[in-house]
Design a protein around this nucleic acid. Structure first.
Lengths: 285, 285
DNA sequence: CAATCGAAGCATAAATTATTGACCAGCATT
DNA sequence: AATGCTGGTCAATAATTTATGCTTCGATTG
């Protein structure tokens, strides 16, 4: 039980001095942090031993124990709300701005999480895992989308999954001619409008591969070609902020996928460790 | 800041004994309630004074102060977590996991924000802005670090800043021979240990350019060569989680920088809009 | 190799906390 | 009214806990 509740409930049965202690604690719970039992006694003009006895009567081991409990109660009470918002009242410093940006990212993350059902993500993980064992994973993205594509391709290859990454529609078209059933194509395209990517997706389907698209949460041509579609939600009026939110939400979606892949298979996990070690050696001779 | 976040963020810079204390506290935060500094020391087989000095180094008034803070942090954490963990005792749903991962990312973001003073970030923005007007910005990163390097290079070029990006030390060395005073080199290297990157940084300094490094918050050779050093704090026991946190914290740091650059100059802002439009047309004919 | 610096421990000072025993007020019993 | 009992408070002090000064040791540097 919260120490404050306990104190309140016992208050009636207390002696005068005890009641003063109780009231002081109830009213100044946050100040207690910097008070020793002696200081508290001085503040009330009573003896230190009275304070200690008070704590023991209430069932605490002693004064520090009470103090610790009150600290916990305080923390639970003003959990989160006060400091964060108060910190940045108007525009503020760059630091405050970064915090603000992070809050926007969190919103985008949540929105994105809510529109991608767990089953969808698991299906994607399963498809990629399957392709990793018996086939190949093709990954493509253009422009800024290539950044995410590239990062994810690197991660997959660390897991020992054969990955073919391109940022060039011509090469990808050529590569895809080697695709077979069971392979997977991951297409990153924020707006899902690029004709060449649609053509590639269509071509890939003809070859019996599974198409996974990653786009904005809009109706778009690319998405209609998908066997499984991952979608991202991220909005801001400012044209230089919105991409940051998009990228962050997308990255988190991919990270979740990656973790799922890591935890699904022990051997993939082992593969990852081995690869990380190897890379470490390579980069730090 | 949560004491646990603080401890995690400083862990790298700690000595062996200190790190054992840090790990113990991180792993047994709830047990701390019943430990005096002496008991904690005994549990680890070290001296009590080491424990006290540890707490003071971290900026606490002393051991009780740390203990109290950890108590608060526990309370805050338990508040939100308890029901969630209870609901999913072993594996848990992917959705819950993603939320959890996001919390870890938030911690990494906070820790990273706190170790990069606003002035440092502003100085970096100023240096890049300056170089953007009259010189060039060179960007390099190897392996996974190339991902961030590449993303940032793309953003800078969208702002109309002349950017030379490489992921290859040989080419970069060649490119740098064209560097002059006022140019800026951005080096991404998580561990800051790669000799070739150090050489490039040294060479760049000889040519009177300004070196900005982006590394983990550890003492590392590359960082010592920096005119300005950005640092990232992100920790997790799991080898497949930690990189995600690192990448997220780093990305946010860069995003903050990018926003600063966007908001600093109206003409850069205009340039960005124009470029975004042009790219839009290019990708969606 | 000497000098320097930082980290860790030991011993001890300082502080905080817990306990003891004395004192006093209130109250019932004799 | 005097005595004895009870609960409450405090001052003094014991016990525990925390903080600091000093020394040693090992690593680093010039």
């Amino acid at each position: 039980m919260s120490p404050l509740v306990k104190i309140r409930s016992e208050r009636d049965r207390m002696s005068a001095v005890e009641r003063r202690i109780a009231d002081f604690i109830l009213e100044n719970a946050q100040l207690l942090r910097d008070y020793s039992s002696q200081q508290l006694a001085n503040a009330l003009g009573i003896s230190q031993s009275s304070v200690v006895k008070f704590t023991q009567k209430l069932g605490f081991k002693g004064y520090p124990d009470l103090k610790y409990s009150v600290g916990e109660a305080n923390a639970r009470a003003d959990n989160g709300d006060a400091p964060e918002h108060a910190a940045s009242p108007d525009g503020g410093s760059p630091g405050a701005f970064a915090g603000n940006l992070w809050r926007r990212k969190s919103e985008a993350e949540e929105a994105t999480r809510l529109i991608n059902p767990a089953e969808t993500i698991e299906a994607v993980a399963a498809a990629i895992g399957q392709a990793g064992q018996s086939g190949k994973v093709f990954i493509i993205g253009l422009g800024e989308d290539d950044i995410y594509a590239r990062g994810f391709a690197l991660k997959l290859s660390l897991l020992g999954i054969l990955t073919v990454h391109n940022f060039d529609t011509a090469r990808m078209t050529a590569n895809i001619s080697a695709a077979t059933a069971g392979d997977v194509l991951l297409v990153f395209s924020e707006h899902g409008n690029h004709p060449a990517l649609c053509k590639i997706a269509r071509y890939f389907r003809e070859r019996r591969g599974q198409v996974i698209t990653v786009t904005r949460h809009t109706a778009n041509p690319l998405r209609t070609l998908a066997d499984i579609a991952l979608v991202v939600s991220a909005h801001d009026e400012l044209p230089y902020i919105q991409p940051l939110l998009y990228q962050s939400a997308l990255q988190h979606l991919l990270d979740g996928l990656f973790v799922l892949l890591c935890e699904g298979h022990d051997d993939r996990h082992a593969q990852l460790l081995a690869n990380l070690d190897r890379i470490q050696l390579m980069l730090e001779p």
